[in-house]
Amino acid sequence: MSVLTTKEIMDIIPHRHPFLLVDTIEELVPGVRAAGKKCVTYDEYYFRGHFPQEPVMPGVLIIEALAQVGAVCILSCEKFKGKTAYFGGINNCRFKKKVVPGDVLMLETELIKQKGPVAIARATATVDGKVAATAELTVAIG
């Protein structure tokens, strides 16, 4: 059972179709960690051009999906409700596995450092328990 539905996610972050890249939040400890899910379908807009003969989810969109889960995590804190989380940086990003139509992308973020309105999260995307991408993401609350 999901903790947050797509509609509830949209109540927290401003992203909308086609750029909302998280379907549900499966776990949430506000300001600490969050886990989300993205069911990747062949109908995703980016597969028309990336790549038509071998559809692969762009790595930057996997990282964006992780950032959206991180934004839900931090913006669920009472002091940040109603604000916007902006990307501040990406460090140590690695792609380990292709994400293709039919995959269920699990997105996990854990806040490892926070100073005022800036937080750093450790983020991991997996498919069937195998790591697809990892990164350290910096988020600034505006």
Rank of each mutant, 00 (worst) to 15 (best):
P18W: 05
P58S: 07
D43L: 09
V22Y: 02
V3Y: 01
H17E: 12
F51N: 08
F51G: 05
D128V: 14
F19W: 12
A85R: 04
D103G: 03
M1P: 08
V139C: 07
L28H: 12
E44G: 02
A119M: 07
E8V: 07
I90H: 04
M106Q: 12
E44D: 13
G49H: 13
L107A: 05
T24D: 15
G70N: 01
V127R: 04
G88I: 13
V29I: 12
V100K: 09
Q68D: 02
F47Q: 02
K7M: 10
V99E: 00
K96D: 13
C73L: 09
F47A: 00
I25W: 02
L105E: 00
G129H: 09
K130Y: 06
I12Y: 03
V29T: 12
H50M: 02
V69P: 00
C77N: 09
K115I: 02
Y46H: 04
A67Q: 11
E108F: 08
G49A: 06
A140N: 07
M57L: 15
G82W: 15
V100Y: 03
E108Y: 08
C73T: 07
I13H: 04
T24G: 03
I63P: 00
G36Q: 04
F95C: 09
A125R: 01
K98G: 03
I141Q: 07
C93A: 15
G36T: 04
L66M: 08
G31F: 01
V22E: 01
F80G: 05
T6L: 09
L107V: 10
R94C: 08
C39T: 10
G49F: 12
G59T: 13
P117D: 14
T109M: 09
E136A: 09
K37L: 15
L111C: 13
D11T: 10
Q53S: 12
G89H: 14
E8P: 01
M10K: 15
A71K: 04
T126K: 13
A132G: 06
M1W: 08
K37I: 15
C73P: 03
T134F: 15
S76G: 13
G142V: 11
K79I: 14
Q68A: 02
T5C: 11
L111V: 13
I120W: 07
E64F: 09
K96C: 14
K79T: 08
Y45A: 14
R33F: 04
F95G: 03
L66Y: 02
A140H: 00
T6D: 15
L21A: 04
L28P: 06
L4K: 05
V118R: 04
H50L: 07
K130I: 10
I120V: 15
I120Q: 12
L28I: 09
I120N: 07
D11E: 11
L107I: 05
Q53Y: 10
E110Y: 06
T138P: 04
E136C: 08
T41S: 08
V72E: 04
S76R: 14
A65M: 03
E64Q: 10
S2E: 09
T126A: 14
E136T: 12
L20K: 10
M10H: 08
A133R: 01
Q114Y: 07
Q114W: 07
G102V: 03
R48Y: 09
K113E: 15
V69D: 01
T126M: 13
E136P: 10
P55G: 03
K37C: 11
F47H: 01
Y86Q: 02
L20R: 12
G129R: 11
I112Y: 06
P55V: 13
